[in-house]
Design a protein around this nucleic acid. Structure first.
Lengths: 194, 194
DNA sequence: TGCATTTGTCAACAGGTGTTGGCAAATACG
DNA sequence: CGTATTTGCCAACACCTGTTGACAAATGCA
């Protein structure tokens, strides 16, 4: 008996083709409206391969919907510019990975898919919260992070998911200037000032 | 031949039972994850009745997903309080109608359902835009309304749809104070001030 | 009361879903 | 080269979907 061989170069290529096709479709249609057969067609393989490679449609989604926000450490930067920096980073992150990123995938499905929603809450707790916590008093960290998320998530919804015309038409710099100040206020916890 | 009679008291009752059940389920599961049979079970009638009364599942959704934001006219109120007034109105509106309102229904489905998204854009144009337009210079009306929507929609998403713990835990007054200032800035168009 | 119309139930349809097993071809390894 | 293993396609499964039509019961009107 010979040692069982696994993950040959060919299998890796198709595996990534499936993952790429899944990311694109999940990101523009959401989990429910994307069928296994559609993913297979885009990856140019048989639907049954998806099950063999990933086990199930849900498992494929779980492997594909893993956002990495790459949150920067803004502890040492000018407190007046952390808001604009955060917004700019968020926009660049989204538009760079296009509609194949983990965050677009999650945001499309989170409203109607409980597991996607849970995953998004995990992203908040593991990535947004720690980054925002450092920018103000610890006792208000959760609220500050929550408010920052409400604005950034709303921005992503209106601009990329819902495609509200005025928000889509705005340039990146316009958004950075307008929303940056909001995020700065939220992140630093200075909204109670009279 | 006698005149065909229609909309008897009994038919009206079941018709509204179907609509009510549909509103509740659409609002918590979204359009795709809600089945005709589920709606029928909750309304305690036969699935086929839904088709006979409304024509199709999509037509039922269209009849049920008609939000009325009841936007107040804030032209004559104190400019410094319009933000807080708008946020408070938005929160009360949402929590009053519970999960049976037209806006919750739409927001759950808009991310993955193109027709629901179009409907939400219509609500923006017909209700949010006119109300915000009066609160500042006309040439920036679209952008101001877009920014207001991004924050209010993000708030609804994080608090009611995604249920981000810190945002859920905040009291209504805390949200009004923190987010009100943001909405005021957006609505009046004073975010470019150095 | 008599009769047309409506309201409701049941069963079934056609189509699409995720998923499975079998089998031919390609592939890697001794 | 020979062979064990993998890769891929095909057909089919069991299930669920929205929707339809036939028929019985209830109902409103003259």
């Amino acid at each position: 008996m010979t040692s069982p061989r696994r993950s040959t170069p060919k299998s890796i290529r198709t595996r990534e083709a499936i993952a790429a096709a899944a990311r694109e479709l999940f990101a523009i249609r959401g989990f429910d409206r994307t069928t296994v057969r559609e993913i297979a067609a885009r990856a140019e393989i048989d639907p049954s391969m998806i099950i063999r490679y990933f086990g199930s449609k849900e498992a494929l989604f779980a492997q594909v919907a893993v956002p990495d926000l790459k949150m920067p450490d803004l502890t040492d930067s000018d407190p007046r510019s952390i808001g604009e920096a955060l917004v700019r980073h968020f926009l660049e992150q989204w538009e760079a990975e296009g509609s194949g990123g983990g965050l677009p995938v999650l945001l499309r499905s989170a409203a109607s898919n409980p597991e996607a929603a849970q995953r998004l809450r995990d992203v908040f707790r593991a990535q947004v919260f720690p980054a925002v916590a450092r920018l103000g008093p610890p006792e208000t960290a959760a609220i500050r992070a929550g408010l920052v998320s409400s604005q950034l998530l709303g921005l992503a919804m209106t601009r990329y998911v819902l495609c509200l015309p005025p928000v889509v038409a705005m340039t990146r710099d316009m958004i950075v200037r307008a929303v940056g100040e909001t995020v700065r206020r939220y992140a630093s916890g200075t909204w109670a000032d009279a």
